[in-house]
């Protein structure tokens, strides 16, 4: 992969916004949910929970799961923007100024670890940081599967969608400069 810095950032947001969102919507219902007690978190699912605090409806159970998974991929996007800066910096030490696809795949390891930490800290997920924490299975399966799918999409079908992406270092849109086009 030959990314420019903007190309990285755009590609990350695009992948999370498409594959990430679609896959999360599909996979969440079948992920192993953690037990319900003591959930923290923010957003719609929590409101439902506060309102119906004494009854846990199946639908809000799912709502909660969705809250967790979507907040997770939201963080993949947001934290990802910082990660991309680091990758871009590291790319400078490569003679070819490229980024082998393997690096992107393996980036799941540090990114996953940080994500797990952050999710626990801000309370999207509850419990201990330990790998036997009740929410870990859900997180790991969701994150790993999303990551692999995003990666597969990037090394594959993404090429078919946009020539601009292929020819301009992973950018879908270019900032206008010296008359160059911002095409797709």
């Amino acid at each position: 992969m030959t990314f420019t810095l903007y190309g990285r950032l755009q590609t990350r947001l695009f992948l999370v916004g498409t594959i990430g969102v679609i896959w999360t919507a599909i996979v969440t219902p079948i992920l192993p949910s953690p037990p319900m007690t003591g959930y923290g978190g923010i957003g719609m699912a929590q409101m439902i929970m506060t309102k119906d605090s004494f009854v846990i409806l199946p639908y809000s159970r799912l709502g909660l799961d969705y809250q967790i998974t979507f907040e997770t991929i939201g963080l993949v996007a947001v934290l990802g923007l910082f990660w991309e800066l680091i990758y871009h910096f590291l790319q400078q030490f490569r003679w070819d100024k490229d980024w082998p696809p393997m690096f992107t795949l393996l980036a799941a390891i540090p990114e996953g670890l940080l994500l797990w930490l952050v999710i626990n800290l801000i309370g999207v997920e509850h419990g201990s940081l330990a790998l036997d924490s009740s929410g870990f299975a859900m997180f790991a399966i969701h994150f790993a599967s999303t990551w692999v799918l995003m990666w597969l999409f990037m090394v594959g079908p993404l090429h078919a969608i946009s020539l601009h992406w292929r020819f301009e270092g992973g950018e879908f849109y270019e900032r206008k400069h010296s008359g160059s086009t911002s095409a797709l």
Binding site: T2, L5, R166, F167, G169
Partner: peptide
């Protein structure tokens, strides 16, 4: 050692951008 006739980042990547 260089894999291709041009460093890889020239194929649309960072080097092409720098060049431009």
């Amino acid at each position: 050692l260089q894999a291709f006739t041009f460093a890889k980042g020239s194929f649309g990547g960072q080097i092409q951008r720098k060049y431009r």
